Measured scan of single mutants.
Amino acid sequence: MSGNGNAAATAEENSPKMRVIRVGTRKSQLARIQTDSVVATLKASYPGLQFEIIAMSTTGDKILDTALSKIGEKSLFTKELEHALEKNEVDLVVHSLKDLPTVLPPGFTIGAICKRENPHDAVVFHPKFVGKTLETLPEKSVVGTSSLRRAAQLQRKFPHLEFRSIRGNLNTRLRKLDEQQEFSAIILATAGLQRMGWHNRVGQILHPEECMYAVGQGALGVEVRAKDQDILDLVGVLHDPETLLRCIAERAFLRHLEGGCSVPVAVHTAMKDGQLYLTGGVWSLDGSDSIQETMQATIHVPAQHEDGPEDDPQLVGITARNIPRGPQLAAQNLGISLANLLLSKGAKNILDVARQLNDAH
């Protein structure tokens, strides 16, 4: 009898209710805020589980004197976190989706994509230029951005401005803007500013005609071990179906173009009346040469937790077992079709030249 009692006690200790789920994140304040929001949602869904947040620095956090596009290494903000995932030191990792490459290392998958916040870019102005827009900034004003995508589009749109690289986390960039006289304004992701509670610093939100956004911008991705079915089931509740389908289309477009950090590629997606609209573009580094096109596809946005595919093969690095396969494939095909259209119009040449120029500098 006593033996059975011990077995029952052991089973209770090993039951999922007692389990601590370890969540990996970057150390920056924004990353911690984003991770806290994901953990809060998981806690609400699984009140019996405990969650421990483990923060670590990544290569991208450490190399702050070089433009991201020049470092010449993929997975700048993800490699150390993936290493911890691989060694079973954490069970899942919360990322900004735009930091996750469209091809993940073997053994990993994006197990959830959370509801997207505003994906557009924002302009934050130096205190002396508050009330201005990019259009009304004085001639030769210097605007800071760490992104080739932003610089290429904005140089084309605002030729009277000069664009220079600015690195560091959000706090560091804002301090550089406010305390030094080098920059009249800087460009940042609206979602990051909003998550930090800095709505009052948003001086201008850039519309798609001015600057399309990065693939996955404004959404959070939760990376897990691809074979860890328990954790895949656990994080599945975080999937937002519309965000998922938009981001599958965007990531398929980028992957098929073979774009990345070192080339200016941008997108804009919208879901309306059962249609998914995808606009994508590529630019030369100075913005003088560009190709942009829009395509659409009829896609039914499923309700969360309709029964999805059981075999769960990944699409552009994403596993969404609780979302039907048909809409996911339709979104992926839309991204591939748009990429093929741009490639047929000469996108590869623009991107190759951009890559060579970026590598040469």
Rank of each mutant, 00 (worst) to 15 (best):
A226D: 11
G216A: 04
D289T: 15
G24P: 01
L81W: 09
S165E: 06
R164T: 12
L245T: 01
N200W: 13
K132N: 14
H256G: 15
L232C: 11
V202N: 01
H95G: 04
C211S: 11
V282C: 08
G326W: 10
I53R: 08
K74D: 05
L154P: 01
G216M: 03
D240N: 15
R321A: 12
V215R: 04
G144E: 05
I318Y: 10
E80M: 10
V224H: 01
Q275P: 08
A44R: 13
S57Y: 10
N171V: 07
M56P: 05
Q180V: 09
V23C: 05
A347M: 06
S165W: 05
G107T: 01
K140A: 11
L137P: 01
I63N: 14
R150T: 01
A249R: 01
P313V: 13
F51W: 10
L220V: 11
H207E: 14
N358D: 01
E73K: 10
F77N: 01
Q314F: 13
T102A: 12
G192S: 12
G24Q: 01
A55R: 10
K115D: 13
I53F: 13
L148G: 14
T190N: 15
L177N: 07
K87G: 07
K128V: 07
V124Y: 01
G107Q: 14
K79R: 11
P208Y: 14
I33M: 08
G24R: 01
N88M: 13
D178K: 04
G72Q: 04
L244Y: 14
D312V: 06
V90A: 07
W283Y: 13
L104M: 13
T136M: 14
D311I: 04
N349H: 05
T172Y: 09
A189L: 01
K348L: 14
D178W: 06
R251F: 03
D359Y: 13
N333C: 01
V237G: 05
M56T: 12
R149V: 01
I21P: 05
D233Y: 07
T41C: 10
T59D: 14
A226Q: 12
T78I: 14
S146N: 13
T41G: 08
P106F: 13
A303H: 03
P127S: 11
L285R: 10
R175S: 11
F129H: 11
M212H: 14
Q34V: 06
P138W: 05
E250R: 01
D99A: 04
A297N: 01
G111D: 03
K345I: 13
D99E: 06
P159D: 07
L188H: 12
D352K: 10
T41D: 10
Q304C: 13
H239D: 14
R175H: 05
C261P: 01
S146Y: 06
A354R: 03
Q34P: 01
S344A: 01
V202M: 12
L97F: 10
R19I: 12
W283L: 04
I336S: 15
L234Y: 01
G308M: 04
P159H: 13
N118S: 14
E310D: 06
L276D: 03
S57L: 09
C114A: 05
M196A: 12
Q332G: 08
K98H: 01
F125R: 03
P159S: 09
T172K: 08
D359C: 14
V202T: 14
R201V: 10
M196V: 11
T136C: 06
L232Q: 01
P106D: 11
A266S: 01
K272S: 14
I63P: 12
C261L: 01
A84G: 07
R321C: 07
Q153H: 06
K176Q: 13
V215I: 04
S45K: 15
A40V: 12
D36C: 07
L238K: 01
A360G: 14
K43M: 08
K348Y: 01
G168E: 01
V267D: 01
P324R: 13
P127Q: 14
T25N: 06
I205R: 07
A331G: 15
L177S: 01
M212F: 15
D273N: 15
G259P: 01
L100D: 01
A151V: 11
L245V: 09
G197D: 03
R149E: 01
D240E: 15
L285C: 06
N169Q: 05
K70A: 09
M56N: 06
R149L: 01
L238C: 04
H160T: 13
L193I: 05
E210I: 15
E89A: 10
D178R: 03
R321P: 07
K128S: 09
P313S: 14
R167K: 06
T319E: 04
L334F: 10
P241Q: 15
T298I: 04
L174P: 01
L154F: 07
T243V: 01
L134Y: 01
E179K: 08
S344L: 01
V39M: 07
S290E: 15
L49T: 13
A67Q: 08
V23A: 15
N200V: 06
N88A: 10
P302Q: 05
H95L: 09
E162Q: 07
G168N: 04
F125D: 01
D178C: 14
E293W: 14
D228C: 12
S288W: 14
T109K: 13
G236W: 01
H160N: 12
V215P: 07
M196L: 12
Q332E: 12
R164I: 09
K70P: 08
L357Y: 11
L148W: 06
D36N: 10
G144H: 01
M56Q: 13
L193R: 01
G24K: 01
V124G: 05
Q194G: 06
Y277M: 11
L134W: 06
K79A: 10
N340R: 08
Q292I: 15
G280V: 07
M271P: 01
V20L: 08
R355A: 04
T136K: 13
E73T: 14
T136L: 09
T136V: 10
L100P: 05
H305W: 09
S57H: 04
A252V: 15
G280T: 01
V23R: 01
R26I: 01
E306H: 12
G72K: 03
K87R: 12
T102F: 03
D312P: 03
G317S: 04
H199A: 10
L276I: 05
L49Q: 13
A252S: 01
L334T: 01
V39D: 01
T269E: 01
N88L: 12
Q204D: 03
V93T: 06
D36A: 09
A112D: 04
G168W: 01
P159Y: 06
Q181R: 13
A67F: 01
L161H: 11
A226F: 10
F125H: 04
I54F: 12
H126Q: 13
A84N: 07
D36H: 13
D233R: 08
L245R: 03
D233P: 06
V38E: 04
S28T: 13
S37L: 12
G168R: 01
V20Q: 12
G236V: 04
Y277V: 04
T58E: 10
H300T: 14
S37P: 06
L206R: 03
D65K: 14
V237H: 01
P302A: 12
R32C: 11
L170M: 13
T78C: 14
T35M: 10
L148D: 06
T136D: 12
H305P: 01
V263L: 12
A191W: 01
H120D: 10
E86R: 13
R22P: 06
Q356E: 13
H95K: 01
L134K: 01
M196K: 05
K140T: 10
L154E: 01
A191T: 09
S28V: 01
G192H: 01
A151G: 11
S28A: 07
R195C: 05
K27V: 14
K27A: 13
V301M: 05
L206T: 06
T243Q: 15
Y46R: 08
L334K: 01
S75H: 08
P324L: 12
G281M: 01
G107N: 07
G197H: 01
G192W: 01
L161N: 04
I299Y: 12
Q34H: 05
D91P: 05
I71T: 09
Q314A: 04
P119C: 10
I323V: 11
H207R: 08
H95S: 05
Q292K: 05
T133A: 07
T66K: 01
I350G: 01
D352F: 14
G287M: 14
I336V: 05
K87I: 13
L343P: 05
K128M: 15
K62M: 10
R32Y: 14
L334R: 01
D65N: 05
G281V: 10
T41A: 11
K70F: 10
G317T: 07
